[in-house]
Each structure stands twice: as structure tokens, then as C-alpha cells.
Design a protein around this nucleic acid. Structure first.
Lengths: 254, 254
DNA sequence: ATATTAAGCTAACGCCGTTAACATTAATGA
DNA sequence: TCATTAATGTTAACGGCGTTAGCTTAATAT
């Protein structure tokens, strides 16, 4: 052992990393051509020019390869989102949040197959699906893809928090926002799961609620478009824009 | 041939129907136990007590069995929805629409696996996914599951139409509804795909738009709950209710 | 130079969907 | 009634799959 834990990668480590990306590239190719269920270890092996059994030196099994792929996809999505947000100045928070939504949409429509896999992630991986409350598990113990997806959501959530800090003391009137009556139980949960976990700050409830609502709407828009079940086909962009406007209005933003 | 096209089913027809339901019951059992990708023709055959090849007398292939299952699920969902709506008097249109949403949600959460399959329907079946506009294809030429899913949506859409006819002439002020500015292209599309295809009538644009928006929101709610990614876990019912209220407000109701 | 570890191989096991060729059973028409 | 026909079943096989065990080779570390 050359006492390597992050320093210069040894020759072997480089080779290993190279074949790993080669494997994943082949798998992704099959994903694009034949969909999630059309990815075959043996086909990957043929593609890479190696025996099927050799792949098990790199991934525990097929599912592990698939979840690893998913993580890469989330990284791509996160990177694209960050880049799109950074086009706008740091103080243009609403613009940056819109850029986040827009990147989500455009990444998914240009990577439908990848998104398909992300939605159908091999759920074993930790098997805590609806067993325990996600908020009670330390972040690092969550399944990898769950962490990645939260990372993606946080990108938008923290922008909202930054916007709040920015408007703070500028006399923004939250009581003017039209928010329904909510029980303590629900608002506590929203504070736990939305504010603490993705926004990162306990903003006033109206914004937390508006964030949750917008989240659901964006998710609906994106998945429906990916499934081709949006009630619109030729004017999707405008439909998004109009929907975005009404979400902004829920935040009390012009 | 006993000139039977719908009259009394012959003995053979009865037997055939019986084994078909037996096959589907077994497949559904496997779906519940192992998820959509865990359904195996050979296991079904073992279950039914028949050779694997025999199943091909009943279904063209595995995909055909799966899509057939999906159709059954939609029928169940539609029946449940209709029943829930009929609990309310015929004129209580808003209540009936709420019942539709509520049934959608509760059916999905109590049939997650089935819903999983419905979302991942073997898409071949006609392979017109994003090729042609759905509005240009005669209804009977659409893939079976698409038709079923439209049947489900129509149940709610036509209720809205009935509500409109009911309010007509009662001086409902549509211009008071807060609707964003929409291009002619988008509104034409909404009229084509929402009004004509699911609502069944060309209601005033504000309602058409509100319907499309609500559709997206409900779809988002239901799928996120099914995937366990709603920002709420213990107070989901209340979250739905509150969301429903704000959708109703978009229609200018209450 | 040698011991150790990583990375590859072959061969096999038990699944799978699907097809072809053949057998049997039940309904039909003369 | 009885031969014909159509529906329903069988067996056997093909090629593909994920995965494991056991062995060999190449690279690294001491």
C-alpha cells in the first residue's frame, strides 16, 4: 500500500477508474437504446471486451451498477443546475430559482431514459422505503441516490433561504400571502422535512408551504412531460412559464 | 360456430375466461410480492399448473399480459372512482370532483405495486409515444392503456363540464378568475387536448386552464406519495385537503 | 526475490422468454 | 353419429440472462 487515500492515484487506481467509467458508459449506451430493463451485464461485458464475471470486481451486482449510474445522473443534473443558476448574479434569487426549474425540465427532456431509471431506482440499497421517517436518519446513512436527490432539491431550497435573508429587514409582508389554515402537526412536519432538510432554515411558514406546493407542481410537470402525458405538446415552454408565474405569486413575488 | 358474439358464452368460452383470470391473478400476486420486474411467465405457469408454452394460447407474450393487467387496474380505479362520486348527489359537482381526487389517491396508496406497473407500462403496444399528436388519432386506435387512462381522466373532466352546465345562466363571473395571459397557440392546444379530449366541452378558458393546472398538481401529489417523496408523511391527508382547497379556489369556487 | 493482492479467466447452475412440432380434447357440420 | 376442425395442451429445445466457485495471471509491496 502506498498510503494513498486521495493523493496521486497509482497506476492501478487509474486503470481501475478508467474501466469503471468504460463499464458505465456501455451501460448508459444500452440504457439509451433499450431502456432501463434492457441493460444486461453480459452485453456490457461483451462491449467492454471482458468476461461477464470480471464485472463483479467492479460492482457487487447489476443493481449496484444501476444505482451508481443514477448517482452520476444526479451529479450531472446538479452540475447543470448550478451552472444555469450561476449565470445570474448572486442577488437575483428568483431568477436563479427559475433557472433551477428550467434546468430540471430541460435536462429531463433531453435525458428521458436516464430519468426513467432515476424514477425506478433499485430500491433495495437500504430498504427503508416507508419504514422510518427520513428526517430521523442521519444524512450519511441515507441511500446514495436519496442523498443525491436531496442535494438537487437543496440547490433550490437554499436559494430560497438566501432570498429570505436578502429580503429580511426590507419589510416583506408575509402576512399578506394567502396561506390556508394548517394544523400544528402539518406545519411541524413541513418545518422538519422541508425547512430543515432541504431549505436549511426555518423560514416563515407561508414560504415553507409555498415551497412544498411548488415542489409538487414542478415534479408533476416534469414527470408528466417525461411520460408524454402533459395536456400540452407544442407550447410546453409557455405552459411552464405560466405555471412558474403562478408559483412565484404564491411566494408573494410579483 | 354457434354464432356467438356476445350471447350465452359456450362451455369452452367459460373455461377460457376462467383460466385467463386465473393467469392474471397469479401474475398480480407476483407483482405484489416482487414488483413489476418480478413477474415471470414460467412462475405463472407453475402457479396455474400448466406448461409455460400453454400461456401463449392466452397472451401473445409477457408484455401483452402486463398491459392487460394494467387495463384491469384502470377498470378497478375507474369503478372505485365512479362509486365514490355517486355517493354524492348528482348536483354536488365539486364534492364529486373531490371524491374523484380522493379515490385516485387512496387507490394508489393501497395499490402501490399496481400503480408502479401502470406508470411503466410496456410502451411498445403501438409505439406512437411522441410521434404524433394524440388529438389526431381516433380514440379507438389509441393503445388500450392510453384509452383507459383517458377514461379515468374523463370521469373528472365531464363532471366539471356538468358543473359548468349547472352554473350556466346563474351569473358565474369567469372574468373574476385570476388567469394568466396565454397565447392563442397555447389556449388552442388546451382547448384541443383538455376541453375536447377529456372534458368533452369547450368551457371558458379560465376553467380549462385551471383544470390543466389541477391535473398536474394531482398527478404530482399522487406519484410523489407513491414514490414516498412527498415532503410530508404523517399528515398527508391534511396536505391533500389544503392543496385541493387552493385548486378549488383557482376555479373561483368557495 | 518473494509474498500478497488485484484483476482476469473458464465453466457451470438455474433461471428466463419464446418457438416449433406434436398430441389431445372438445365442438361442429355432414 | 362420426369425421373434421379448431382450440388447447404437451415436450423439447434455443439462446439469453445474473451470479458463483475455482483457478490463473499480472501488478504491487516488502
Amino acid at each position: 500500500m502506498t498510503s494513498n487515500t486521495a493523493s496521486v492515484p497509482s497506476r492501478r487506481e487509474r486503470m481501475r477508474a478508467e474501466t469503471m467509467t468504460e463499464i458505465k458508459a456501455s451501460a448508459r449506451g444500452q440504457l439509451l437504446e433499450h431502456g432501463p430493463s434492457g441493460i444486461s451485464l453480459r452485453a456490457v461485458a461483451r462491449d467492454v471486451g471482458v468476461s461477464p464475471a470480471a464485472l463483479y470486481r467492479y460492482f457487487d451486482n447489476l443493481d449496484a451498477l444501476l444505482t451508481d449510474l443514477c448517482c452520476d445522473f444526479y451529479d450531472e443534473l446538479v452540475d447543470a443546475s448550478r451552472a444555469a443558476m450561476e449565470v445570474h448574479p448572486a442577488e437575483a434569487h428568483p431568477e436563479r430559482m427559475k433557472a433551477w426549474v428550467w434546468t430540471f425540465r430541460s435536462w429531463v427532456v433531453s435525458h428521458r431514459r436516464e430519468f426513467e431509471l432515476m424514477l425506478n431506482v433499485p430500491e433495495s440499497e437500504s430498504a427503508l422505503t416507508p419504514c422510518v421517517n427520513i428526517a430521523d436518519v442521519p444524512f450519511d446513512d441515507l441511500p446514495a441516490v436519496t442523498r443525491k436527490s436531496m442535494e438537487h432539491a437543496r440547490l433550490c431550497g437554499r436559494e430560497l433561504a438566501a432570498y429570505y435573508r436578502h429580503t429580511e429587514g426590507q419589510g416583506f409582508d408575509f402576512s399578506a400571502i394567502d396561506i390556508p389554515e394548517i394544523s400544528k402537526g402539518l406545519s411541524d412536519e413541513l418545518l422538519d422535512q422541508c425547512a430543515d432538510m432541504v431549505i436549511g432554515e426555518r423560514l416563515p411558514l407561508p414560504w415553507i408551504y409555498a415551497f412544498a406546493s411548488a415542489w409538487v407542481r414542478v415534479f408533476g410537470l416534469v414527470t408528466m412531460e417525461a411520460f408524454g402525458s402533459l395536456p400540452v405538446r407544442d407550447n410546453i415552454e409557455e405552459f411552464y412559464k405560466v405555471q412558474l408565474m403562478s408559483m412565484m405569486r404564491d411566494f408573494g413575488i410579483a
